[in-house]
Amino acid sequence: MRLLLHICCGPCAVYPVSVLEEEGVDFEGLFYNPNIHPYDEFVRRKENVGEFAKIKNFSVKYMDDFSQDIWEKLGEDNENRCNMCYTVRIDKVAQFAKENGFDAFTTTLLVSPYQKHELIVELSEKAAQKYGLTFYYKDFRPGFRQGQQWAKELGLYRQKYCGCIISYRESEKLKNERKKSK
């Protein structure tokens, strides 16, 4: 089986990559995250994925789509924003997998306890069916903290928000509130 691993960021890839390597899975990474904002954050996360891929010696393809305006239009509606974000990325990953001869795909989004796990699984299964692929499901969440610790030890940049401009603003607001309360 040839597997495409969607990678949202370097730290979230650490544990899933270790599991796939341990299981002897033939995989290649794909960085496709048009949700990450602002642009300098997008670049930083992309470069960080490259650093991690060099450390672990695996191949990664990059799709440089950047589309802040789409997320801006969604406003503060978290439910629709997250649903759209997952749908856009998962569908594109499945399409890329199909067009490039992969048998299956999965995503590092499955490692974070902060993501909507069941929704990611549901959307991934639908995309797999749509493109005639296998969705390679693994619940990577039990290794989240361990992966984050390994990322820290490797010197990888660890961001403080999921990626979209709205979550960025929310994280900045929290940071400013903490500063004020000190």
Rank of each mutant, 00 (worst) to 15 (best):
Thr107Met: 01
Cys85Gln: 07
Lys126Gln: 15
Gln129Asp: 14
Ile7Gln: 00
Ile7Ser: 00
Asp40Arg: 14
Lys182Gly: 11
Lys130Trp: 10
Gly155Arg: 15
Lys92Val: 06
Cys9Lys: 03
Cys162Glu: 04
Pro34Arg: 01
Gln68Thr: 10
Arg158Met: 10
Arg141Cys: 07
Asp77Lys: 11
Asp69Gln: 12
Lys175Asn: 12
Ile166Cys: 06
Phe58Gly: 01
Tyr32Gly: 01
Tyr136Val: 02
Arg158Ala: 04
Glu153Pro: 06
Met84Gln: 13
Asp91Gly: 05
Asn80Gly: 09
Asp103Tyr: 03
Pro11Trp: 06
Val43Trp: 03
Pro38Ser: 07
Gln148Ala: 08
Arg178Leu: 15
Met84Cys: 07
Gly155Ser: 15
Ala53Trp: 00
Tyr39Val: 08
Glu76Met: 07
Gln146Val: 12
Ile165Asn: 06
Val14Lys: 04
Tyr161Pro: 08
Glu153Lys: 14
Glu22Leu: 11
Leu156Gln: 05
Ala128Tyr: 08
Glu79His: 12
Leu119Phe: 08
Thr107Trp: 00
Phe42His: 09
Glu99Gly: 04
Ala53Pro: 03
Cys12Lys: 03
Leu154Cys: 07
Thr107Ala: 00
Phe66Trp: 13
Ala151Phe: 05
Pro16Cys: 01
Asn57Lys: 15
Ile55Trp: 06
Lys160Glu: 15
Lys116Val: 14
Thr108Glu: 01
Gln129Asn: 14
Lys182Glu: 15
Pro38Phe: 07
Asn57Val: 08
Val88Phe: 09
Glu76Asn: 11
Ala13Tyr: 05
Asp26Ser: 15
Glu72Ser: 03
Tyr161Lys: 12
Ile165Val: 12
Tyr39Arg: 15
Ile120Asn: 01
Leu110His: 02
Gln115Val: 06
Gly75Ile: 13
Asn83Pro: 02
Glu51Leu: 14
Asp40Tyr: 10
Glu172Ser: 07
Asp40Lys: 13
Lys92Ile: 09
Gly29Phe: 02
Tyr137Thr: 01
Tyr131Ala: 04
Glu21Trp: 09
Val60Arg: 00
Glu72Gly: 02
Phe135Cys: 07
Lys152Trp: 11
Arg89Phe: 05
Phe31Ile: 00
Arg89Tyr: 03
